[in-house]
Simulated scan of single mutants.
Amino acid sequence: MSRPAAAPEKAPAAPARAYDIGLLVLRLALGLIMAAHGTQKLFGWFGGGGIDGTGQFFAATGYPSPRAFAVVAGLSETLGGLGLALGLLTPLAAAAVAGTLVNAISVKWGGGFFAPQGVEYEILIALTAVTLALTGPGRIAVDRLLPWLRSHRIAYGVAAIVLGAAVAGVTLLLRH
């Protein structure tokens, strides 16, 4: 009687720590960049226009109540960015960032694909935020301390992205 052939050995999977560190680096990069963009809109930091300058831009691109939309965009970017950086309410933070970027893509749409006039940067940011909403923040995140978010569920990510897309859609309808 012959023995069954042994299954080929699989390479060991990367330790979970490597994934968690990778997600932390991604969250910090995206989150802090978005928070900086938000503070440009809200406070004029980092060479931004503040509420007045951002409001003027929003008025020129067809948004009603441009100062109010400047505040909404600034808060979405700042709070969403900080939420991503901390890994706090990650699906909602990611949805805030992605929804804001949907509007940015709409504003820049006629400029082609490639930067600086095109939308490639905005698409990359939006899809990175969607990815974080779906994967979760990893174990090095404040979400791990919240009992109801300890185990990331894809349903949370999907629901948050649907919410972000719906709010972005309503915002775009108001723009025209």
Rank of each mutant, 00 (worst) to 15 (best):
V167G: 08
A18E: 10
I125E: 02
L101T: 07
P137Y: 03
A13G: 10
G87A: 12
P137A: 15
F43D: 13
A155L: 09
E122R: 05
G164E: 07
A93S: 14
G87Q: 06
L89C: 06
R153E: 07
A126N: 01
G118L: 01
I123M: 13
L23I: 05
A14M: 13
A98H: 05
T131H: 09
L146T: 12
L79G: 12
A166I: 12
W45G: 15
P116C: 08
V107F: 06
A129H: 10
G48P: 00
G55K: 00
F58A: 07
M1R: 12
P12A: 15
Y63I: 07
N103G: 15
G136R: 05
G49V: 01
W45E: 14
A35R: 01
Y156V: 02
Q56Y: 03
S106I: 04
A70M: 02
L24I: 14
F113N: 05
S65N: 06
L30I: 10
V25N: 08
G62L: 09
Y63R: 11
V158F: 05
F46E: 05
W148E: 11
A35M: 12
L92P: 03
Q117H: 10
L28T: 09
I51V: 15
T54M: 08
A160T: 13
G111C: 12
Y19Q: 12
H176M: 07
P147Y: 07
S65G: 08
M1T: 14
G47H: 02
L89H: 03
L23T: 08
T78V: 13
T100F: 04
A7S: 12
G74W: 00
A165L: 15
I154C: 06
A59C: 06
T61Q: 09
V162N: 10
P137K: 03
S151R: 11
G31N: 06
A35G: 08
P64Q: 02
L174D: 09
A95C: 08
A129S: 15
G38H: 02
F114E: 12
T171Y: 07
W109E: 08
G169Q: 13
L42T: 03
A14E: 12
Q117C: 04
V119M: 02
M34K: 06
V71L: 10
L24F: 14
L172E: 14
W45D: 15
V25D: 05
A165P: 03
P137I: 02
G47P: 00
R144N: 05
T54F: 00
F69C: 04
S151D: 10
V71H: 00
V71E: 00
G112I: 06
G83L: 03
G111Q: 11
A60T: 14
T78E: 07
I140L: 15
R17S: 11
A60L: 10
F46S: 08
L149G: 00
R153A: 11
L92M: 13
W148N: 08
L124W: 10
S76R: 04
V71G: 01
W109C: 02
H152Q: 06
G48I: 01
D52W: 00
G99R: 14
A18C: 11
I125G: 02
T171D: 12
Q40L: 14
T61P: 02
T61L: 04
R17V: 13
T39Q: 04
L82D: 03
I140P: 04
K41C: 00
S106Q: 08
A96W: 01
A14H: 10
G87F: 05
A141G: 01
P137M: 04
